[in-house]
Nucleic acid binder design. Structure first.
Lengths: 152, 152
DNA sequence: TATTGTTATACTCTATAACTATA
DNA sequence: TATAGTTATAGAGTATAACAATA
């Protein structure tokens, strides 16, 4: 019996939000590096990118520019990132992690990962391998989606 | 090579939030039944439960009572649910969908599901089956988690 | 004129603390 | 006293619209 896209979508609609809530709650619980999910994702992207601009981050995370601007505001205020003007194009920003930001990112990542891992440890190795495979299949579908079908 | 809980957790931490963002954005986009994710989940639980109380919903969704109370406020104001007093225990609420709430839930569910399904249609049947299997494995791990390890 | 980003405004989501009403 | 909910308060996340600065 084939698995229809609709069946799969329904399943995602039911399970993904509950996983997300656990992630959100856990991230908040670890006071050491008290980061929200968007803050965490922003730091993570800045960490692996090469001096991204605000637009770069906003597009990757999937937020509007004003939303991202505000999140960046908060991270700058907490001295977790730096926000400088691009040397040759003065409209653009150059975002980078501070030492403190790297620490916060690593602390939060480790704590949250450990918490999830604790749950996942109850599964069989085969189950975990299967989950990783499924997520790898899904990853490109939901990574930085462009605005599709611009009406001509 | 075994797949460690940590590897699996890391993968989830990267992919799940991006899926979630797509779900959130899509749900908002369909103006017909303009529901946020928590609103949608609340309606869905009330729909399948048997006259749940506020605490029932809050526990299932994973929110505090005040947070849930506010969401319910909004849904009542929009006439999507009814909020009545329990006939024998007057402290409790009895929540139920209105006709309009059922419609909104179905509209939102169909639209969001269709949008996800469109993405998932590009995958092979085997991939989709694998994703469903993975999500079914994860579902019980993240469903209405109790407060674990109450320190004695 | 087009691009990059910020400000203004207005919601929703979320939590903690303090409270009311009922059991 | 314990339980079910609400209110008060505060802060983050998010969007749209309007704006400023730079290219």
């Amino acid at each position: 019996m084939p698995t229809s896209p609709d069946t799969c979508a329904q399943e995602m609609l039911e399970v993904v939000p509950s996983i997300m809530r656990t992630i959100r709650t856990e991230m908040r619980r670890h006071r050491a590096a008290d980061l929200s999910v968007p803050q965490f994702r922003t730091l993570a992207f800045i960490d692996r990118g090469d001096q991204p601009s605000l637009s770069d981050v906003a597009e990757h995370i999937g937020l509007t520019l004003p939303s991202m601007s505000k999140i960046v505001d908060g991270l700058v205020a907490r001295k977790l990132i730096t926000r400088q003007t691009h040397p040759t194009d003065r409209r653009r920003l150059v975002l980078a992690l501070t030492r403190s930001g790297q620490t916060a990112l690593e602390t939060s990542r480790k704590a949250t990962r450990a918490c999830l891992a604790e749950d996942l440890a109850t599964l069989s190795d085969a189950d975990r391998a299967n989950i990783v495979r499924a997520l790898e299949t899904l990853r490109p579908l939901f990574a930085a989606k462009k605005e599709a079908t611009p009406k001509p």
